Amino acid sequence: MYLLASRPNGVIYAGVTSDLAKRVSLHKQKLIEGFTSRYGVSQLVYYEMHETMEQAILRETRIKKWKRSWKVRLIEQMNPEWKDLFDEATGEVLFGPADIERERS
C-alpha cells in the first residue's frame, strides 16, 4: 500500500501494488492514465508492506475513506519532510516504514 503526493501537502493518492518500484516508475512516467497523471501525483511519500494482497487492499480501502488530516499525519509520522522515497536514478524505493519496523525489532 502506498501514498503518492503532487508536492508537500499537495494532492494525495492511495494505491496498492505487488511491485512498488515498478508502479511508482509508471506513475512518474505518466504511463498510468487517470487521477495521478491528470493531477501530477508522482512523489512516493509513504508506503507499507503487508503479508498478503488482501491485507494491503483492505488497508488502502480504509485509508481512502480517511479525512485528509489523518492521511497527512500518517505521512508526516514517517516522512515529515514529504521527501520522495523513490530514487529515479537507481529505481529503488528508499527508507520507509518497513525499515523503521526492522530497526525497532
Results as ranks from 00 to 15, higher is better:
16 V>Y: 03
6 S>H: 07
8 P>E: 11
28 K>Y: 04
94 L>G: 01
12 I>S: 04
11 V>S: 08
38 R>D: 12
101 E>A: 14
46 Y>E: 02
58 L>S: 12
65 K>V: 00
21 A>L: 02
9 N>S: 05
9 N>K: 13
28 K>P: 03
19 D>N: 15
105 S>W: 10
3 L>K: 10
84 D>S: 09
58 L>N: 11
75 I>C: 03
28 K>G: 04
3 L>Q: 09
53 M>E: 13
9 N>A: 04
21 A>D: 08
64 K>E: 10
77 Q>I: 01
8 P>M: 04
42 S>Y: 08
72 V>C: 05
89 A>C: 07
3 L>R: 07
53 M>N: 04
47 Y>K: 00
27 H>N: 05
40 G>C: 12
7 R>Y: 09
101 E>V: 15
90 T>F: 08
72 V>W: 01
68 R>P: 00
3 L>E: 03
71 K>W: 00
87 D>V: 01
86 F>G: 01
58 L>E: 12
34 G>T: 07
56 A>L: 05
5 A>Q: 06
53 M>C: 02
50 H>I: 00
73 R>Y: 08
21 A>F: 02
22 K>R: 15
46 Y>V: 00
91 G>N: 09
87 D>C: 15
93 V>Y: 03
92 E>W: 02
32 I>Y: 12
33 E>F: 08
91 G>C: 07
2 Y>V: 07
25 S>F: 08
41 V>K: 08
60 E>W: 04
26 L>F: 07
71 K>E: 05
92 E>L: 14
73 R>H: 10
29 Q>L: 15
86 F>V: 04
42 S>T: 13
50 H>C: 12
54 E>L: 11
96 G>E: 01
32 I>A: 04
71 K>I: 12
62 R>L: 13
93 V>E: 02
83 K>G: 01
75 I>A: 06
13 Y>D: 00
43 Q>D: 15
91 G>Y: 10
19 D>Q: 13
91 G>Q: 05
71 K>S: 13
95 F>R: 01
20 L>T: 11
99 D>P: 00
36 T>M: 03
6 S>G: 14
34 G>A: 11
39 Y>E: 06
26 L>Y: 11
25 S>V: 00
36 T>R: 05
9 N>R: 15
38 R>E: 14
24 V>F: 02
98 A>W: 00
64 K>G: 06
9 N>V: 01
25 S>T: 07
34 G>V: 12
65 K>S: 13
21 A>R: 10
7 R>K: 15
68 R>Q: 05
22 K>M: 09
2 Y>T: 06
67 K>L: 09
3 L>G: 05
17 T>F: 09
102 R>I: 01
87 D>E: 14
100 I>Q: 04
59 R>L: 09
30 K>W: 03
1 M>D: 11
95 F>A: 00
